[in-house]
Write a protein that binds this DNA or RNA. Structure first.
Lengths: 157, 157
DNA sequence: CAATCTTTGACTAATATTGACTATATTATA
DNA sequence: TATAATATAGTCAATATTAGTCAAAGATTG
């Protein structure tokens, strides 16, 4: 019944309309801001809230002359739901090395990760690699890395 | 969408186009500057920002009559010494996201990393993933993860 | 009314462009 | 051969051109 009620939704729909036709959109932030009569930083808000990796978008940008913001749509993989439930149920906002290793190991056993891929992740979240004095900080950081990596693996590219 | 709208990107692409065909490219700075209608020092800027060792290039030059700038592509897979010095000198104990991304991209281009492997590493060292308040701490952590991961891959082979 | 989402703008950071000045190598000339 | 003239490239800082961050204010929703 009702259309979009705020300008952020309008901008979101505009960009997604383009992405329905093309692989990616490349904009000049101030152009879009002018077009919808909003301040430039609102474009960042729209992107941060509506074009996340969880939703299947990858965003790249460059400042300076000829700068741009590029939004790319990426496709969900078959394993996406496995990774998704793992993320919401198991990882949380803190995870110790033992539990994290078990997750990666099971993903390897299930064929979601190749051996080299698993080894890369294990190296990245190893406690000696992170080398953080505080155990809680270490576990929080490990959770963030795991979430970032597994979210990325939900998509192809 | 559109191509680059800044002249530095255009010059970069021109030079990389030549390097796609040849082992190296040798230019006279003022020729290229004239060709693209920029001041000569902009050629130095393009080289300094886009043909660094972390991008996989080595640059040599000579001044005076018959002077030149020569850009050579190095293969990090073939040249273990270059990779070594790159990790020691460029990564060291701190590295920002921009430089780290350039290194991973080079390793992918040279066949050291597969695309999925590169994406995993990029996700792990992304500043939003690490989400550390202090920039120095973030860069230190990124360096440890990068070195930890690459060393793990190295022992594999 | 409390929580959440949106809008705004001041401030920050990154990148690109330009030109004056410096450094170095080669060539011409005394 | 020594020196001067010429022909290169390098450095650096000022300015211009973008995008990013953050927090306060305002609006909406449950």
């Amino acid at each position: 019944m009702e259309g979009p009620t705020n300008i952020s939704d309008v901008i979101e729909k505009y960009l997604k309309g383009i992405l329905a036709e093309a692989e990616q959109v490349e904009i000049r932030r101030s152009d879009i801001a002018d077009q919808f009569n909003v301040v430039p930083s609102q474009i960042n808000y729209v992107i941060k809230t509506r074009f996340t990796i969880q939703n299947g978008y990858i965003v790249e940008s460059k400042r300076g002359g000829g700068g741009y913001i590029r939004i790319e749509k990426v496709n969900l993989l078959a394993d996406a739901d496995v990774l998704d439930s793992l993320l919401t149920d198991v990882v949380g906002d803190s995870i110790n090395q033992h539990d994290a290793f078990a997750i990666i190991n099971s993903l390897f056993n299930d064929g979601v990760l190749k051996e080299r891929e698993a080894n890369i992740i294990l190296a990245a979240i190893d406690k000696d690699t992170l080398n953080v004095a505080d155990r809680d900080v270490e576990n929080t950081l490990r959770a963030r890395i795991l979430i970032g990596v597994l979210n990325r693996l939900r998509f192809e590219d």
